[in-house]
Simulated assay, not measured.
Amino acid sequence: MNLDLGRIRSELNQGWNELPNTTEIVSSVVVPIFHTQEGEHGFILTQRSQHLKSHPGQISFPGGVKDPEDSDLLSCALREWEEEMGVSRTQIEIIGKHEHLLTRTGFHITPFLGIYSGDFQFSYNRDEVEKVILLPIKSLWNAPFYQIQIPNRGPENTAYYFDLDEGLLWGATCELILRFLRHYASFQREPNLVKPNLNTPPFFRPPRN
Rank of each mutant, 00 (worst) to 15 (best):
5 L>K: 02
52 L>D: 09
112 F>K: 07
191 P>W: 09
148 I>E: 12
12 L>F: 05
101 L>A: 04
101 L>I: 15
47 Q>F: 00
69 E>N: 09
126 R>N: 05
115 I>Q: 12
33 I>S: 01
23 T>F: 06
41 H>N: 11
69 E>V: 08
133 I>D: 10
67 D>F: 07
3 L>H: 11
142 N>M: 07
200 T>H: 13
5 L>P: 02
90 T>R: 13
110 T>Q: 14
74 L>A: 06
155 P>C: 06
124 Y>S: 12
104 R>D: 14
150 I>N: 10
139 S>T: 11
8 I>P: 06
180 F>W: 15
179 R>G: 13
130 E>W: 01
123 S>W: 05
158 T>L: 12
153 R>T: 12
9 R>V: 04
35 H>E: 12
30 V>D: 07
88 S>L: 02
26 V>K: 12
152 N>G: 01
170 W>A: 08
207 P>L: 15
196 P>M: 10
161 Y>V: 02
101 L>S: 02
11 E>D: 10
19 L>F: 05
169 L>A: 07
140 L>M: 09
62 P>C: 08
56 P>A: 10
149 Q>S: 12
108 H>E: 12
152 N>I: 01
36 T>H: 03
147 Q>L: 10
125 N>G: 02
159 A>F: 00
51 H>G: 03
18 E>S: 06
94 I>E: 09
89 R>E: 13
109 I>F: 06
122 F>L: 09
168 L>M: 07
194 V>R: 08
61 F>M: 15
144 P>E: 14
16 W>K: 07
134 L>D: 07
102 L>Y: 03
24 E>A: 08
